[in-house]
Design a protein around this nucleic acid. Structure first.
Ligand SMILES: Nc1ccn([C@H]2C[C@H](O)[C@@H](COP(=O)(O)OP(=O)(O)OP(=O)(O)O)O2)c(=O)n1
Ligand SMILES: [Mg+2]
Ligand SMILES: [Mg+2]
Length: 1225
DNA sequence: ATCCTCCCCTAC
DNA sequence: TAAGGTAGGGGAGGAT
């Protein structure tokens, strides 16, 4: 669209370029000046880290050694500091000549080194190895730049293992040494493509420049660069004449004899371009070109595929932050998955799946201490490094931490610089700078930005340390990215609560507990529910501990959001930053969410936000006013639903520790410029080989091949960013292969064929991706390669796929596999770090006595983490013998009564596409006008440009609010159910129903105590134990965030009598064996019938509820939907409740007071939950019934309720609800 | 209804 | 100058 084009040119000319010279680039400039300045924030933060109190002195090996750590080191300074402490040395914060005996560094810039001629500059290995050997080793071998690089000291094993589960236990840090050498360069920082060879061939082949064709294009050429002069040289031309087989062979041969990559850029002579490729018979005619591609100047062209078609890719991948980001995310996910495998295998020592009873029994046996329940449900933390790249890059530039800093390829002061900012620190953000912004835009906002370069290897090291640390606390981790993960800290928190409890009595824990009955008894426990304060305090303690360790070990600040579901935890992180933590207690969730901008919801990106804005929806508060029906109609079923839920803080997603990979792909859309097909072939070859390589590493093959081609949009002559793709049309094609493959050969041919289908001239290509899906051969998350897996790979100095690094060469040299031969797996050389990791890895959470009943299976593995998200009511449904006396405890804390057997859902929102339906574009004309029309709305646009522009718009920070609503997840994980013996499951259901029924009867007397609160807002949780003290548990234990919380009577009745299929999550249901299913069905039906006939729907039965409990209510499904839908919020239920209301009105001469209150508070809850549409409908039903009744009593009751509701709506949402008008009496 | 294909969108 | 990759969710619409 046009607005996009305009967005592309946002470059304004704000004057003010007070160029701040980029200190970062000179890697040391101004070093002297801050020598005596106190080492900024980060160091401060850790310098008073209390080793003295938390770490034992382990030896005095380093006695007399006073070290100043200079720059980024491996292990990081923070860790060296700990090592020094632990072994008798001293860590100096300043490089004071009088105090410091040794400087430790990994890499010092020459300039700095010169200053230090008198000092002893050591490599960190000196420290590490000395400790390992128990004596101070000779300095000679460990001098920095003395030549020899020491290899990995195998010392990890000797260090004490941290025990994260003893909150106050002394601990020490295992070194985080993650690399073997200090020569690490890009090559091993990530999965540097092993195709580097391709680059070299191209470089070194300097043969017969072939004249290239030069004809006109269909549209004006891009004018990116000023010099349009000469044509390109082409140093690969030999390739251009080969057929495919030859090409591949030649590429292989080339790389064999390949030497180091010559940094010398192109020593090739320019050659006039003309003539067409002779190798491709099919479209020489159309492949004319030139015009469009030519205009790139020599210099620009060398940066593109034109300059070096075969070598472009590997060079590009070494510098693409997004490539690293993706690679690392995958890496870290694999790691977590394998971890789980390993620990699962270790834990379930070959036993058959345990029954609930066994699990329970084990948890009791274990330590004898049951863990206290946490009313809000699972405690989830979202941990995210602060301005990750910047923080890591500033490890060696600590003097910059208070300055506005960005990580960026460029350091230009040009306000038109299109270089993208990967990360900016908080001082920069204060000026409005954002991640993803162009540097030029940022400079307009902030005139003293310092740019620092990417340091990918450092980022990876930090990532590894981060994950090592996390994993030492819990195995219940969902890796999100290199700097971010969700962790389940429920059990850690529970333990913290217990331990803080037992510490209260000053004296021996055991004895004190003995005498003090208010304290949790060591054995039975769980019969007490910790207070909200206690929980919050424990959460704070646990999370600061984790954050502290991460910060200390990485040297980078980290923040965490904590809540009882993933959404809120993530939202809380934003609030926590920078360098903080924020716990969103259950009752704060709704209110908090309502203050958020929709654009801040995860899953709501630029496109969705814009569509919402067009509907005048910009905040969650506004969003929450829209009915689910409307949202679903507008955005689709899932997205509508998620929006609906997220707006009010509801999120039923389970933390997902493992996700089977569905696809592998390779794509480049920057610097893609061709003149003719032969060049395309070279490029496709490199992509194909890279894809093959990756799949070989993953040991997968794929059956469905897709390509994604970006083609310059006709008429577009400017690009958003230098050598970028600009505004494009994009096209996808796919083939279903006969047999799964990973062969580069096959990939190459299929890709070329699909490209040929599209019939665009190569000169119009701006980006190309190849993806394989329908994968097979995936390493089953079970056995296989336990050693060469991700754990090893993760911590090995070199990734298996990565090339051996030739010290100074910027390009990794690769042992390239022939196209057919799969990349060999690396031998089971377990890297030292892998071992360290394995040892450091802490006791599995599940093995360590989860809370009673908190036993769950996550995913497909045999892991048994806590199950605190299980609704207490469900817990009560456990078979008697399993409960071991817990029932009373749980029942006590339950106000709840409703259970939702929710499915595991869903994930993030995504954007639909309501306008302009895509038509298939198969018989594409050469330059498809129609085609582009349909895509005009979307693909035609430079979305990234738009997003970047959007990023420039700042948004106001959210502020907290207070409420008393209590969300509390209640779900019965289908995965758990699936893994439990069917008989047990059946038992659970039957028990549950019986229980609910019991409760229903028992509660009939209490509920009346639930008065309608005058202020109509929050916390009226009429259900169950209204007796709960003022606040806290009453509500907390009750219905979930996600569900509205209807009056007990309704809820209970509904729950109790729901027919099985409605009551059970479809997923769960499906997981049950057919026979069991039928059995359950029958039994449930019988029970229900029995109940009904025994208790005819007479008004007397449910004294507390609607006296005339209409039959309809008894049949209400708790939730028809498998997910987080609150009861009554789908049409079905609303309708049925409406019918119930009608029945009630019809059958009662005058409204009973209690009933009125029940109904009223039910409505109130709809208000609280923002289920206003449901409310409107129900009030409609109600009004209709009352009107027909023609009774002043009823009309009065109706008006009373409505007035009350209107007040409530107004108070709570500052809005009037339509449809709540009164009746004329 | 449910699947499959071809997209788009989002996140880091 | 600059390095806009990559995996998964999910919607629309057609095939079954
Ligand atoms: N558009 C983006 C967004 C992120 N990143 C990289 C750099 C970031 O440092 C890293 C982590 O992303 P985050 O979203 O976590 O952002 P930061 O860590 O930089 O900042 P913070 O988490 O403090 O908001 O990913 C990037 O290259 N480009
Ligand atoms: Mg971050
Ligand atoms: Mg992040």
């Amino acid at each position: 669209m046009d607005d996009r084009s305009s967005l592309e040119q946002t470059a304004k000319t704000v004057t003010r370029a007070h160029p701040e010279h980029a200190a970062g680039w000179s890697a040391g400039g101004g070093w002297g000046e801050y020598m005596r300045i106190k080492k900024a924030k980060l160091d401060q933060q850790f310098e008073d880290g209390d080793e003295s109190s938390s770490m034992p002195r382990l030896s005095s090996v380093l006695a007399g050694v006073r070290v100043y750590v200079d720059g980024y080191t491996t292990p990081p300074a923070a860790e060296l500091k700990h090592l020094l402490w632990a072994h008798g040395g001293t860590y100096e914060h300043y490089n004071s000549k009088s105090r410091v005996t040794h400087i430790v560094a990994c890499n010092l810039p020459d300039t700095k080194l010169k200053q230090l001629t008198n000092e002893k500059v050591m490599r960190p290995e000196w420290i590490v190895d000395s400790i390992a050997q128990g004596r101070l080793l000779p300095e000679d071998k460990y001098r920095l730049y003395s030549g020899r690089v020491a290899t990995q000291p195998a010392l990890m094993q000797m260090l004490p293992i941290a025990n994260k589960h003893a909150p106050h236990a002394a601990r020490s840090f295992a070194t985080t040494t993650t690399t073997t050498t200090t020569t690490a360069l890009m090559g091993r920082a990530g999965q540097a493509p092993s195709l580097a060879a391709d680059a070299q061939e191209a470089q070194s082949m300097n043969v017969n420049p072939l004249p290239l064709d030069q004809s006109a294009t269909t549209s004006p050429p891009e004018t990116v660069d000023s010099d349009q002069d000469s044509a390109e040289e082409f140093d690969n031309d030999e390739f251009l004449l080969m057929d495919d087989a030859e090409l591949l062979r030649a590429l292989d041969q080339q790389q064999e004899g390949e030497g180091a990559f010559a940094e010398s850029e192109h020593s090739i002579a320019p050659a006039p371009a003309s003539s067409s490729s002779s190798s491709s018979s099919k479209n020489n005619a159309s492949t004319t070109t030139a015009g469009a591609a030519r205009p790139l100047g020599d210099r620009a062209a060398t940066m593109t595929t034109l300059g070096n078609p075969s070598g472009f890719m590997s060079r590009y991948y070494q510098t693409s932050r997004l490539h690293f980001l993706s690679t690392w995310a995958a890496e870290v996910k694999t790691l977590v998955a394998e971890l789980l495998e390993t620990s699962a295998a270790k834990d379930s020592t070959g036993d058959a799946p345990m029954t609930v009873e066994q699990l329970m029994a084990r948890s009791f046996r274990d330590k004898g201490a049951a863990l206290p329940p946490i009313p809000g449900g699972k405690v989830l933390a979202h941990v995210d490094m602060d301005c990750f790249f910047v923080s890591a890059s500033l490890l060696s530039r600590p003097h910059l931490v208070e300055q506005p800093v960005v990580v960026c390829h460029s350091s230009s002061t040009d306000l038109a610089s299109t270089s993208e900012i990967a990360s900016c620190n908080y001082p920069a953000r204060a000026k409005g700078v954002r991640n993803g912004m162009r540097l030029g835009d940022a400079r307009q906002l902030c005139d003293n930005i310092t740019c620092v370069p990417y340091e990918f290897e450092v980022y990876r090291d930090v990532m590894i340390t981060l994950y090592k640390t996390l994993v030492s606390y819990t195995t219940i981790i969902q890796a999100v990215s290199c700097d971010e993960a969700y962790i389940d800290i429920t059990e850690l928190v529970q333990r913290e609560i217990v331990s803080s409890q037992s510490e209260l009595p000053s004296g021996g824990d055991a004895q004190a507990a003995e005498t003090d009955h208010s304290q949790p008894p060591p054995v039975h426990s769980a019969s007490w529910t910790p207070s909200a304060t206690q929980i919050a305090a424990s959460i704070a303690a646990v999370v600061s501990r984790i954050r502290q360790e991460i910060a200390t070990r990485t040297g980078c600040p980290v923040s965490a959001g904590i809540a009882h579901n993933m959404l809120l935890a993530r939202m809380a992180t934003k609030r926590a930053k920078p360098s903080g933590q924020f716990y969103l207690a259950p009752h704060k969730g709704l209110e908090f969410m309502l203050t958020q901008a929709v654009g801040d919801l995860p899953g709501v990106g630029w496109s969705l936000a814009r569509r919402l804005a067009q509907l005048d929806i910009e905040t969650c508060s506004e969003l929450a006013r829209i009915s689910k029906d409307k949202l679903q109609a507008e955005f689709g079923k899932k997205i509508g639903e998620t929006l609906f839920n997220f707006a009010r803080g509801v999120d039923m997603r389970q933390l997902k520790t493992h996700q089977a990979r569905q696809s592998v792909s390779v794509e480049i859309t920057w610097g893609v410029r061709f003149e003719e097909e032969a060049q395309v072939r070279v490029f496709v070859t490199t992509l194909s080989r890279e894809l093959e390589r990756r799949m070989a590493v993953l040991n997968v093959t794929g059956k469905s091949l897709h390509i994604h081609l970006m083609v310059r949009k006709p008429g577009i002559t400017k690009v958003y960013k230098y050598l970028g793709h600009g505004v494009c049309d994009s096209y996808n094609r796919s083939t279903l292969l006969a047999t799964p493959t990973r062969s580069a050969d096959v990939i190459f041919h299929e890709t070329m064929a699909l490209l040929a289908d599209l019939k665009f001239p190569p000169c119009e290509y701006r980006g190309l991706g190849i993806q394989l899906t329908k994968l097979t051969g995936q390493d089953p998350p079970s056995v296989s390669k336990p050693q060469s897996g991700a754990i090893t790979r993760f911590f090995s100095a070199r990734a298996p796929g990565a090339a051996p690094v030739e010290s100074t060469s910027p390009a990794p040299v690769t042992h390239h596999q022939p196209a057919i031969a799969p990349v060999q797996h690396h031998p089971a050389t377990v890297a030292p770090l892998a071992q360290a990791f394995a040892k450091t890895r802490s006791p599995r959470v599940s093995a360590a006595a989860p809370a009673p009943c908190d036993t769950v299976v996550i995913g497909d593995d045999d892991i048994l983490p806590p199950m605190s998200q299980l609704d207490p009511a469900v817990l009560e449904a456990l078979p008697e013998e399993v409960r071991l006396g817990l029932e009373a405890d749980y029942r006590r804390k339950t106000g709840k009564s409703e259970v939702s057997l929710a499915s595991r859902p869903r994930s993030v929102l995504q954007q639909p596409k309501s306008t302009s339906k895509p038509e298939q574009v198969f018989a594409a004309p050469v330059l498809p006008a129609m085609r582009s029309k349909r895509r005009l709305t979307t693909s035609t646009v430079d979305n990234r440009a738009a997003a970047a522009a959007a990023a420039a718009r700042a948004s106001p920070p959210p502020q907290a609010a207070q409420a008393d609503h209590v969300p509390s997840p209640s779900q019965w994980d289908p995965e758990v159910i699936r893994l439990l013996p069917p008989e047990v499951v059946k038992e659970m259901y039957l028990e549950y129903n019986a229980l609910v029924q019991r409760k229903e009867e028992a509660s009939s007397s209490r509920t009346s105590s639930t008065a309608v609160p005058a202020d109509a807002s929050l916390h009226s949780k009429p259900a169950g134990r209204a007796s709960a003290k003022s606040k806290g548990k009453g509500p907390a234990a009750t219905a979930a965030t996600k569900r509205s919380d209807p009056p007990a009577s309704l809820t209970t009745a509904i729950s109790a009598s729901s027919p099985v299929p409605n009551d059970i999550d479809p997923t769960v249901w499906q997981a049950l064996p057919e026979s069991i299913r039928r059995e359950l069905e029958t039994e449930m039906r019988l029970k229900q019938q029995a109940r009904k006939s025994a208790v005819p729907s007479s008004s007397s039965r449910l004294g507390f509820g609607l006296p005339n409990q209409p039959e309809a209510l008894n049949n209400l499904p708790v939730s028809v939907q498998p997910d987080s839908v609150p009861p009554f919020c789908n049409n079905d239920t609303v309708t049925t409740v409406g019918a119930a209301l009608q029945l009630w009105v019809d059958s009662e001469a005058v409204p009973g007071m209690e009933d009125v209150q029940v109904v009223c508070s039910y409505f109130e809850r709809l208000v609280e939950q923002m289920l206003l549409d449901s409310l409107q409908v129900l009030v409609g039903y109600f009004r209709q019934a009352v009107t027909a009744k023609r009774s002043t009593d009823w009309s009065g009751a109706f008006n009373g309720i409505v007035q009350h509701l209107q007040t409530a709506v107004q108070a709570r949402h500052r809005a009037r609800l339509a449809g709540l008008h009164l009746l004329v009496v």
